[in-house]
C-alpha cells in the first residue's frame, strides 16, 4: 500500500476529536441524576486526577453539570456521558467549591449558552489559588486548564430551572472552604453536598472546622432523601452525615483538651483521634493536615 494511503487509513482509525471521547462511567442514582465516582487516591498520573464525585441532572429543557472534575479531559469525558444519556443541552455548570479536583475541568465545558454558578466567594478564592493548583497538578493535567469562574454568584440562595425541574442552590458560611455550595434536586430529594460531606475518604480542611460542625448541624434539616458526597458513595440522608460529624467533633474535642494541657501543635498532631485511622482512607496524608488546621483555628478560642 502506498505510504500516503496508509497514513490516511491510520488517521481514520485514530480517535477523532469529539466523537471518540470515552464517556465517563456514570450511575443514575435517581431519575435524571447521574453520578460519576472518583477514586480514593491522591490525584496523580495513575488516576488522571479523577478523584472527586461529579455528575449532572437532566431536566426537560436543559442539563446542569455539578462539578467539572480535576482536568479538562475528565470534563470532556463527562460531557460525552451527558451526550450518551440525553440530547438536552448543558446550560449550567455548578461549582460546589474551589478545590481543583472539582473545578479544573471548567474551561472544557465553557461555551455559548452555558452559565457557571458558584458561591459568591469562589471567584476570589479560586483566582488566588489557580496557579498553585495547576502547577501541583502538572503530572496528570495533560493540557493546561483554562480558568473559568462562575458568573451566577450565590450569596445565600438561588434557583436553577431546567424545565419542570428546579435545583435549589445554597451558599454556606465557611466550613470545608469559604465557598461551599450545595445543590438540592427537589424532584428526587437528592442533595449534592460537595465536599461538605466526605464518606470513606479522609476529609480535608481548608476553611473552619467549627464552621463545618455548625453547618452540618443545620444541614441535616434539609429535606432530602439521599446525598451525593464530594467523595465516597451515595447514601441516605441525613444519616450519612454522622461519621463525618462525629469525627470532626472528636478532633475538636481532643485538640481543645490538648491545648488546655499546653501541648504544642507539633506534639498534639500525632495524639489526636488516632484510633480513627482505620475508618478513613488516605488517613496518613490528610489526618495531620486536618489536625494542624484545626489546632491553628482552635487556639484562638
Amino acid at each position: 500500500m502506498p505510504r500516503l494511503a496508509l497514513t490516511l487509513l491510520l488517521l481514520l482509525l485514530l480517535p477523532g476529536p469529539a466523537w471518540a471521547v470515552e464517556p465517563l462511567p456514570v450511575t443514575e442514582v435517581a431519575p435524571g441524576v447521574f453520578v460519576h465516582r472518583g477514586v480514593h487516591e491522591e490525584s496523580g498520573p495513575a488516576n488522571g486526577g479523577d478523584i472527586a464525585n461529579i455528575g449532572f441532572v437532566v431536566g426537560r429543557d436543559a442539563v446542569a453539570v455539578v462539578d467539572s472534575g480535576g482536568t479538562p479531559g475528565i470534563a470532556r469525558r463527562l460531557l460525552a456521558a451527558v451526550r450518551a444519556k440525553t440530547d438536552r443541552p448543558v446550560r449550567y455548570v455548578i461549582n460546589t467549591h474551589m478545590h481543583p479536583d472539582h473545578v479544573l475541568g471548567n474551561g472544557a465545558l465553557a461555551g455559548e449558552g452555558v452559565t457557571f454558578a458558584g458561591h459568591a466567594n469562589l471567584p476570589a478564592a479560586l483566582s488566588a489559588r489557580f496557579e498553585t493548583y495547576v502547577s501541583r497538578a502538572k503530572d496528570h493535567l495533560g493540557e493546561a486548564p483554562v480558568l473559568v469562574l462562575p458568573t451566577l454568584l450565590v450569596k445565600d440562595r438561588a434557583e436553577i430551572d431546567l424545565g419542570g425541574r428546579v435545583l435549589d442552590l445554597a451558599a454556606h458560611p465557611t466550613a470545608h472552604t469559604n465557598n461551599d455550595l450545595t445543590v438540592l434536586d427537589r424532584q428526587t430529594g437528592t442533595l449534592w453536598a460537595g465536599d461538605l460531606l466526605f464518606r470513606e475518604r479522609h476529609p480535608s480542611l481548608d476553611g473552619s472546622v467549627k464552621g463545618w460542625l455548625a453547618l452540618l448541624d443545620r444541614l441535616v434539616t434539609v429535606q432530602a432523601t439521599q446525598v451525593i458526597p464530594g467523595h465516597g458513595p451515595v447514601a441516605e440522608w441525613p444519616e450519612a452525615v454522622e461519621p463525618l460529624r462525629a469525627y470532626l467533633a472528636q478532633v475538636v474535642g481532643e485538640v481543645r483538651a490538648l491545648q488546655k494541657e499546653g501541648v504544642g501543635i507539633a506534639h498534639a498532631v500525632p495524639r489526636v483521634a488516632v484510633e480513627a485511622k482505620t475508618r478513613w482512607e488516605l488517613w496518613e496524608t490528610y489526618h495531620p493536615q486536618l489536625v494542624t488546621a484545626a489546632y491553628a483555628e482552635l487556639e484562638w478560642e
Partner: peptide, 28 residues
Amino acid sequence: SGGCSAPALKDPAEAAARLGRMKLNLPA
C-alpha cells in the same frame, strides 16, 4: 513543599476583621 506560594488565607474576610489581634497563652 508549597508553603510560601500556598494561599494560606482560608477566610480572608475573617482574617481582615481580626488583623493585629493578639493572644497570650500561659500554662494554667
